[in-house]
Write a protein that binds this DNA or RNA. Structure first.
Length: 152
DNA sequence: GCCAACGTTGGC
DNA sequence: GCCAACGTTGGC
């Protein structure tokens, strides 16, 4: 059982959208490291923090569950999509995504500043300067600390 | 295969 | 909108 932090621009897709949809394919990831996490490391039942970036404030907004296993990201085949990749084929997809299911919305957003201020979060990759990875692993402790902060 | 230039991300 | 960080690209 692993834990993840999955970042998304709040204006694109937020926790309320996921609550409404119940589940969604986490498409559009075009970074190899993040792809490998989804394709190789995530397993059905893993839990993730849904993180809002470019938000007021940016931070952890809720919990999602990985349906797993990874599937091909359909947007890579769609010429009209900004995520289209001419080098990808149906036979050999380059990009993968996970279907994620809504689990819960936090009572309040746990801001990135609160995470910075909490010693238990100090190793989180998301807090590293210049971090641009949209999917990062979390330890069980980090996951639980964020959940706990959301209750306060 | 090096590395400079470029583009993107994302907090502020 | 600024700017630091860093992944990607492409010339050599």
């Amino acid at each position: 059982m692993k834990y993840w932090l999955m970042k998304n621009e709040v204006s694109d897709y937020c926790i309320d959208d996921l609550a409404k949809d119940k589940s969604t394919a986490w498409t559009g990831v075009r970074n190899y490291q993040a792809r490998n996490f989804m394709r190789d490391e995530m397993a059905p039942g893993d839990l993730g923090i849904f993180y809002h970036s470019n938000a007021e404030p940016s931070g952890a907004a809720g919990i999602l569950r990985i349906q797993g296993p990874a599937i091909a990201d359909e947007t890579q085949f769609d010429k009209k999509s900004k995520y289209f990749d001419a080098k990808a084929t149906k036979e050999k997809p380059r990009w993968f995504c996970q279907v994620v299911k809504f689990r819960s919305k936090f009572k309040r957003v746990v801001s990135i500043q609160e995470m910075r201020d909490n010693k238990a979060c100090k190793n989180m990759l998301i807090l590293r300067p210049g971090n641009r990875l949209s999917i990062t692993p979390l330890s069980k402790q980090e996951f639980e600390v964020i959940c706990k902060m959301s209750e306060e």
